[in-house]
Design a protein around this nucleic acid. Structure first.
Length: 117
RNA sequence: UGAGAUGGCCAGACAAUCGCGCUAUGGCAUUUGCCACAGUGAGGAAAGUCCGGGCUCCAAUGGGCAAGGUGCCAGAUAACUUCUGGGAGGCGUGAGCCUACGGCCAGUGCAACAGAGAGUAAACCGCCAGAUAAUUUUCGGAUUAUUCGGUAAGGGUGAAAGGGUGCGGUAAGAGCGCACCGCGCAACUGGUAACAGUUGUGGCAUGGUAAACCCCACCUGGAGCAAGACCAAAUAGAAGAGCAGUGUGCUUGCACACAGAUAUGGCCCGUAUCGUUCUUGGGUAGGUUGCUUGAGGCAAACGGUGACGUUUGUCCCAGAUGAAUGAUUGUUCUCGACAGAACCCGGCUUAUCGGCCAUCUCAUUUU
RNA sequence: CGGGGUAUAGCGCAGUCUGGUAGCGCACUUGUCUGGGGGACAAGGGGUCGCAAGUUCGAAUCUUGCUACUCCGA
């Protein structure tokens, strides 16, 4: 059962600044993924999709939904880490299917970086 | 059949799996929650923020000025830069469509360059009469030049040159006279009105520009849900109240006297710091609310040319807050555009793949 | 989400209120001075005035609608 409840989102600005300061980065396919350890007991996801990269609100919402769904389906392989997904300037040229594939590759690299203890 | 005009409607469909927000019910915890099941869940533009209103706070009970807006007339509406009907002008064969459409005979200004002249008109070329001179002569005059006058018909300049066309008239011309057209004024008729029609009259007066200042008529207080209301840590500061160390006295909880406490340090001096508890108000982080039952939708009847209004019945139809509608797979079709609510409504504007319906127009063919 | 501002030469800015000629500085090109560079002097080129409609005889300027950038309110 792969749920995605409200506690698995990062709601606090301090969490974001902590991640931005200490995180490991990996970027490919129009997205950048930042990861850092947390003490909550489960993985958490945060999104930062820039208006400059995707001008239309429809496209931004669509991208966020795709990222959330992918996170939900792959959260069993992830350790207790905070993840922030950033958009990059070239994301506007990608199809949604391509984004889906690159997200799966991101989760694999993150899972190898942070072995589940 | 083809080409159009106007108005309205839809915005891929179905199924499976995994998920999200809100609401109701039930269960477990009772503290914020968790679980089960059911219902419900973006738009015609949600957009731009260009107008109007509700709502909230601030200001003000009034009047005037300023500033801004609107601008044919009548109506609709909570209100409007909206809508409906009508008028005028323009476009189209037509159905129809478009129009910031009050006033420069109240005042002030502006019009570069060109042009003689750009507004109480003006003689550059030209046309015409007279005078003078020359030439010529059939002795009537003719031609040329100069000068002084007349003249807005023609040329030329310009975006624009002070009514247009025709006839008369004249030395040449001229609203100088006449006819028609246009314009102004007056009366009458129709119309709520804008305006239209008829008659008479004037004889050209009144050129353009008000999205130039302005005049006239009408309208407008300012800010915006990050408005506003409520709850409320920590820290610093403010106000108030109680308590405070040591010694003495006695009436045993009061009075009087003396200053202190902590840190540094072996101790003194010295140095540094300074009460403690509670309450109050203020209000930060954070949270709650505002937050969706409304100038609501749908249907019918009635009134109205219509926008719309009235009555009855019926329905409840997003409410998020780092922000909910998605992903994957399958089937199918016409292969899916523009695009995501954030306090709520009425409009306008802009973006947009296509499809359907109704009414109407034109052309062609057949009967 | 709400409220403002700006757009003119490669860059930074005037001109817009009050409509007729688009200008200033730096940069660029050419020439002269110098043995050369630097520097100075002289001359020159370079503009859909963000885009599109409208008003006007005429629009960078006035009006309306779009586009981009930017600031403020947590």
């Amino acid at each position: 059962m792969a749920k995605f409840s409200r506690a698995m989102r990062m709601n606090n600005p301090r969490d974001y600044t902590r991640v931005f300061r200490q995180a490991k980065r990996s970027s490919k396919g129009g997205l950048t993924v930042l990861t850092v350890e947390n003490s909550v007991g489960h993985p958490r996801l945060g999104l930062a999709i820039a208006k400059k990269h995707l001008k239309l609100a429809t496209r931004r919402n669509q991208l966020k939904r795709v990222i959330r769904t992918s996170f939900r389906q792959h959260q069993s392989v992830l350790a207790n880490i905070d993840i922030v997904v950033l958009s990059r300037g070239d994301v506007s040229q990608r199809e949604m299917a391509q984004i889906w594939v690159t997200l799966e590759r991101h989760w694999q690299t993150v899972a190898t970086q942070w072995q589940k203890s």
